[in-house]
Design a protein around this nucleic acid. Structure first.
Length: 434
DNA sequence: TCTGGGGTCCTAGGACCC
DNA sequence: TCTGGGGTCCTAGGACCC
């Protein structure tokens, strides 16, 4: 039985949250702003129709002819977090397995629901979420996460509740053909530019591009995306959230900050906030990075960006210890006569409290088949992709195993001689044989 | 005048060990 | 024709995500 993924995504989430608490906003253009009311981070459909762009600076809103009609909100993240929990709790009732992917998105395990219409079931879930929380939700259904994203995008575009791409290959093909390569999950701006310059314009084009070519140009993540578009799942549902690896507290300043004292005050506040985050999560930091930067949009100010990382004497989540180290780092990077616009404290090397890391070694672990019985690509397959047989003078292939206690982390094999050294990571890339 | 905040992963290459 | 092989750990920078 093959896997089926649903991607449930709240429509215009923050704007929809504001509407739940003020139904008079229904049908009106609603916009939510970032911290400091800096730029637009959510728009209702009506606001989109007026030409409000994502990420647009708030002051530019006033240039729109219809700006007086737009209801503008400062962000209220505690509210959005609470609404998110309610939506997720609802979704949980309709699947045995749920992965909360972001504040407004969740992947649902819909495998084994094939005896009824998946799109009917999806529509039912959407209706229930709307009824119980007031938040409009759409669901994309497909054989892989990447395809489910595409299905969801279509659902939103066509103002449908659920879109199911599992029904026929023809349907999937049409969806891929109608999706620009830049709109594929995992393909960002740079990737899209590169692909377009080679004539790969749609998701369908990417799904049929030669695997080795994609692997060479877009690394293992791109190769995975390509396979997922073809219906081969490379990304699993992860219902257990992993421990966080970093924690960041940063802000843009409303006006430029110029003195070490003022900057220190801000950094101390960020450090305290970071320490509290860690305590809530039961984590401790091993080191602290402080960064400061001037306003990159300024055409007149001299620019300065800098950062420093300092190890803490021992892993901790105590405010005093983290603040002290953060301020030491700040003193190292501060430059007088600069107008700083943003600063932050990044806490690194997070580990569950009481455990300070260490490494485990054990038996060699080099899987050759994946969980579905497919053969996994080996490092030598990749070398041959890249250089072609017979041209290799020296190669080193690193295989990164799937981890887990008792498993050795890396397995490297050196062959032949002379550079270029070629290293690749092992990342469970399934190979489908014709 | 005014342009967000918080994350993850991958790669290349170096340092260092036996 | 001409060279060591195997392993761990770390970092900077880039790319991507919501």
């Amino acid at each position: 039985m093959s896997a089926v993924f649903g991607l449930a995504d709240c429509n215009n989430f923050y704007a929809s949250c504001e509407r739940v608490f003020d139904p008079a906003l229904e049908g009106k253009p609603v916009v939510c702003l970032s911290n400091n009311d800096g730029c637009v981070i959510a728009r209702s459909d009506e606001a989109k129709a007026l030409g409000v762009k994502m990420g647009e600076p708030a002051f530019k809103l006033r240039r729109l002819s219809a700006w007086r009609a737009i209801r503008v909100f400062s962000s209220n993240f505690p509210l959005y977090g609470d609404m998110s929990r309610r939506v997720m709790a609802t979704l949980e009732d309709f699947t045995p397995n749920l992965e909360i992917y972001s504040i407004d998105e969740a992947f649902l395990d819909l495998s084994g629901f094939g005896d009824r219409s998946l799109s009917d079931y999806g529509n039912f879930i959407c209706a229930q979420a709307r009824k119980r929380t007031g938040i409009p939700v759409s669901i994309g259904i497909a054989e892989t996460k990447t395809l489910a994203k595409i299905a969801n995008r279509i659902a939103k575009k066509e103002a449908r509740g659920a879109v199911d791409l599992t029904a026929s290959l023809k349907l999937r093909r049409a969806a891929l053909a109608a999706t620009g390569v830049g709109d594929v999950w995992g393909v960002g701006r740079r990737g899209a530019e590169m692909l377009k310059s080679h004539g790969v314009l749609t998701a369908l084009d990417l799904s049929t591009a030669p695997q080795a070519w994609v692997r060479a140009r877009m690394s293992v993540t791109g190769a995975r995306t390509r396979m997922e578009l073809g219906g081969v799942p490379c990304l699993d549902l992860e219902s257990q959230p992993a421990d966080r690896k970093t924690a960041l507290v940063s802000r843009s300043f409303a006006r430029p900050v110029e003195t070490l004292d003022d900057l220190g005050e801000a950094v101390a506040a960020f450090a305290a906030g970071g320490a509290e985050k860690l305590r809530k999560a039961g984590l401790a930091a091993g080191s602290v990075t402080v960064f400061i930067r001037t306003n990159p949009f300024s055409k007149t100010d001299p620019q300065h960006n800098n950062a420093a990382t300092l190890a803490l004497p021992m892993p901790t989540n105590h405010t005093a210890a983290i603040t002290k180290t953060a301020l030491t780092a700040l003193r190292r990077i501060f430059k007088a006569d600069r107008r700083y616009k943003k600063a932050g404290v990044l806490l690194l090397d997070l580990a569950p409290q009481g455990r300070t890391g260490g490494s485990v070694q054990g038996d060699l672990f080099a899987p050759r088949t994946d969980a579905r019985g497919g053969r996994l690509m080996t490092a030598f397959d990749e070398i041959n992709c890249k250089f072609g047989r017979g041209t290799i003078r020296y190669a080193a292939a690193g295989l990164k195993a799937a981890g887990g206690p008792g498993k050795r982390k890396n397995w490297r094999m050196n062959q032949a001689h002379r550079s270029p050294r070629y290293t690749t990571n092992w990342n469970e890339l399934p190979i489908v044989r014709a």
